[in-house]
């Protein structure tokens, strides 16, 4: 299915056009990589609303990718259960490994490192959301391996 077909399908599912806005933003994120101004304007057209309204909705939700984000997200859960299970030092280790000094995205645009609020997987703390995947009982070695695997694959592209 094309992106347009998927958007039409999403619109068909809901009683109102606006209800399809969150799903449409996900589809456009796949299309453009991030929620860019173009994506905002396109979502507004599909839902018969204004770009300002769509931007207002988009900016409320943290899970959409911002334009300044890298291709892969590394979210270290930092809320209470993970915090008492060592997420702070894990975050620092990842930050050092990626050489992030005062920035959150690597210069090659591949990785964005962020502290996340509770990811809802406290039984396997500390938890890292690596792009879409949850990594439980996370340690720096596991994260390093994932980073290197992506680096290798990306260099072949």
């Amino acid at each position: 299915m094309t992106f347009d077909q998927r958007i039409k399908e999403a619109l068909d599912k809901y009683p109102t056009k606006n209800s399809a806005l969150l799903p449409i933003l996900y589809i456009l994120q796949e299309k453009y990589g991030t929620i860019s101004q173009i994506a905002i304007e396109e979502a507004a057209k599909w839902t018969d609303s204004s770009p300002a309204f769509v931007y207002g909705v988009f900016s409320f939700y943290t899970f959409y990718k911002r334009e300044d984000e890298g291709k892969y997200r590394i979210w270290v859960c930092s809320t209470i259960s993970c915090s008492v299970c060592g997420c702070k030092s894990l975050y620092e280790q990842i930050k050092n490994y990626l050489n992030l000094n005062g920035v959150t995205t690597t210069p090659d645009g591949l990785f964005t490192l962020k502290k996340a609020e509770c990811l809802g997987a406290c039984e396997i703390a500390p938890v890292v959301q690596f792009e879409d995947e949850y990594i439980g009982n996370a340690d720096i070695e596991t994260i390093k391996n994932k980073i290197e695997l992506i680096r290798t694959n990306e260099s072949k592209l």
Binding site: T47, Y61, F63
Partner: peptide, 22 residues
């Protein structure tokens, strides 16, 4: 699918979100 907002677990916020709003 929600998109990352704790408050959407509150039932009326959830309904706002389901309607495609903040």
């Amino acid at each position: 699918r929600g998109a990352g907002a704790y408050i959407c677990g509150e039932e009326t916020a959830l309904l706002s979100s389901l309607e495609g709003k903040r």
